[in-house]
Design a protein around this nucleic acid. Structure first.
Length: 611
RNA sequence: UGCCGGAUGGUGUAACGGUAGCACAGCAGACUCUGGAUCUGUUUGUCAUGGUUCGAAUCCAUGUCCGGCAGCCA
């Protein structure tokens, strides 16, 4: 994905070259280009600003921006903001930031924006009034750029609606919402014509104008397309085009009290922006005839956009519904939209997942019309694969057990050389302090270990990574019988370069020098849900994992005091970690907070479970 | 019982009338100063039944199962 065969873009972030993806949508785009249908491909990513973006949106972003970069096109970012009661600027801002983060270094030169404040102005094309707002690509135009907004087209949309009325294919209907439902019929029973269906064009014009002027309360009238109340496709049974909402809009303020419906706004927004391929998810498939109907009725002078549908992403052990994510946030079951346990883009970013990993994941799952359920293990693999290549290795002990090397001179210390990244020799080495008193992981000692346990046991030997082989001579317990300290001896010749350096011991464990260690809060995350399909039946909240967050105080090697928020770390043998924004910069009151992005694969855990 | 769409190993995805492949997961082994990484091997699949064809996952027919659609949400 980072090196499409159709372009010379070099691999990003050291990721290996991957062939350009192919799928049925890219096939269509390639064929359309081949047939000379378009001079330039324009796609769009059109979220509604009513929540934060999640990994399902990431799939769509990768598809739409991926097509733009592979076919030398553009992908517009557009707020699909036609419902003032659900949308907020906070969401506009988070969406914009998340998109930019995800495409950075990959397709940021394909991001279609427009000068701030610009709306679609009428022009004359082939003797017809036309509205066209082509994208400005990339920054540096002097002008401040912003995303597109469907709400910037409210005036053109209103003009188009008037045209449908004048043409006699749209009418003002006085039915209440409940009556409208009843008249619509059901999937296997045709609907009935509204009693207001045959109003004169003049009356419709008058009424629609007065709707816009604010003469009628919410819910009293709608503008409807006049299509066919007996159509087998429900969306062709005189769908509502406009409804009355006396509500403040986050982008247009109080300018309007009638708002277009999705079906009316979307196809025309696509047209206005010159979109060639309007790619959406499967549930809009039945809307496509309406999408086409509206555009065709208006006899527009430029080429029409075409809609294509693909299957949205479903992932095991999580939920994707914006409504349910909002519920978790509102009910404080998670801290916020960027809670690292959430599948939101901002949550995953905070957790330490990189954009490269997300893109690689999108590449691997592909694009089809089959509505499946993707194993979260595919995501986890993409994350580990990416982090393994980029993470700086560090030593940190999450649940400390004190040990004393009795034959190491008191008061003495030294430093040992530690490899920063075995996957990247260029990353070099660092010096880590070593001394008589250390911390090791509680898990790395067992008094009565099971078979095949390679770590420390009474009388047993283990290698301290980058340092000496030690032998456990004695386990000291407290009054309750729990082991609180280990007395060990070291083979002082077994350090790298020493006489017995090549002695084989079965286990190697990590450690930290006790007097040099710095403390850090470490947040250990696990799956948010305990079942693969929390959405499947009943209340998803009953499947919340009570152990999805565990906070511990870890002892870390001193170099972690200079940890940087943009870097990724592997705490050796534990997992991948990154600095959380809750951390305070290194002052005398420094506070370090790390998030565990993901554990290392643990085949021992599997082995232990098997018993 | 209306309309639209879909069905390939456990999961996701390729094969576009010519040897069913890849990834994840699983299993077995090698290697390892991370029980990580890496490497090797390996179990498991074309929804069913007919038809066309020298040859069908692919084309046709019938059936089965699954998903979506009845907001003045998107």
């Amino acid at each position: 994905m980072d090196t499409p065969t159709s372009g010379p873009t070099p691999a990003a972030g050291g990721a290996p070259a991957t062939p350009a993806p192919t799928d049925f949508i890219r096939d269509i785009v390639a064929a359309d280009l081949q047939a000379g249908k378009h001079q330039r491909i324009v796609t769009r990513f059109p979220p509604e600003p009513n929540g934060y973006l999640h990994i399902g949106h990431a799939k769509s972003i990768c598809l739409n921006f991926g097509i733009a970069r592979e076919f030398d096109g553009i992908c517009n970012l557009r707020m699909d903001d036609t419902n003032p009661t659900k949308e907020e600027v906070e969401y506009v801002d988070s969406i914009t930031a998340d998109v930019k983060w995800l495409i950075d270094g990959w397709a940021e030169d394909r991001l279609g924006l427009k000068p701030a404040g610009r709306t679609a102005e009428p022009a004359t094309v082939n003797g017809r009034t036309d509205y066209h707002l082509p994208a400005t690509v990339g920054a540096g135009h002097g002008a401040l750029l912003e995303p597109f907004y469907a709400s910037d087209y409210f005036q053109p949309l209103y003009e188009y609606a008037l045209e449908l009325v004048r043409k006699g294919v749209a009418y003002v209907c006085d039915l209440s919402p409940e009556e409208t439902d009843r008249y619509r019929g059901s999937p296997d029973r045709p609907g009935q014509d509204s009693p207001f269906r045959d109003r004169s064009i003049a009356e419709n014009l008058d009424l629609f104008t007065r709707m816009k002027a604010g003469e009628f309360p919410d819910g009293t009238r709608t503008l409807r397309a006049k299509i066919d109340m007996s159509a087998p496709n429900i969306w062709l049974r005189d769908p509502v085009l406009y409804r009355i909402r006396h509500a403040e809009h986050h982008h247009t303020g109080g300018a309007w009290c009638i708002y277009p419906m999705y079906d009316f706004a979307h196809c025309l927004s696509d047209y206005i922006e010159g979109i060639t391929h309007s790619i959406c998810t499967l549930e809009f498939e039945v809307h496509r005839p309406l999408y086409d109907w509206i555009l065709e009725q208006l006899a527009l002078p430029r080429p029409l956009p075409r809609q294509f549908e693909f299957a949205r992403l479903n992932l095991t052990y999580t939920i994707m519904s914006k409504r349910k994510l909002l519920q978790l946030v509102n009910e404080k079951l998670v801290f916020d939209w960027d809670d690292p346990r959430l599948p939101t883009i901002s949550g995953m970013r905070r957790r330490g997942v990189t954009p490269q990993a997300l893109r690689q994941f999108a590449y691997h799952i592909g694009v089809t019309k089959y509505n499946g359920l993707t194993d979260v293990a595919v995501l986890e693999h993409a994350i580990r694969d990416d982090l393994n290549r980029r993470a700086q290795r560090r030593l940190a002990v999450i649940r400390p057990l004190r040990i004393v090397i009795t034959n190491y001179p008191e008061g003495q210390s030294e430093t040992v050389a530690a490899t920063n990244n075995p996957e990247d020799p260029g990353a070099g080495v660092r010096q880590v302090p070593f001394g008589r008193e250390l911390y090791i992981e509680q898990d790395d000692f067992q008094e009565n270990p099971p078979p095949k346990y390679f770590r420390l046991r009474p009388g047993g030997e283990v290698r301290l990574k980058y340092a000496y082989i030690i032998k456990c001579e004695e386990a000291i317990k407290d009054a309750a019988g729990v082991v609180i300290e280990l007395r060990c001896t070291a083979d002082l010749e077994s350090k790298r370069g020493g006489a017995t350096a090549n002695r084989k011991v079965k286990g190697t464990i990590h450690w930290v020098s006790a007097p040099h260690a710095i403390e850090a809060e470490v947040r250990l995350y696990d799956r948010l849900f305990t079942v693969p399909e929390p959405d499947a039946a009943g209340d998803f909240k009953q499947f919340l994992n009570p152990h999805s967050l565990d906070v511990v105080m870890a002892r870390c090697e001193p170099s972690l005091g200079e940890a940087r928020p943009e870097l990724r770390y592997q705490f050796e043998r534990l997992g991948y970690f990154c600095l959380d924004p809750d951390s305070q910069p290194s002052t005398d009151r420094a506070r370090l907070v790390f998030n565990r992005t993901i554990t290392l694969k643990d085949t021992w855990a599997k082995e232990a479970r098997r018993e």
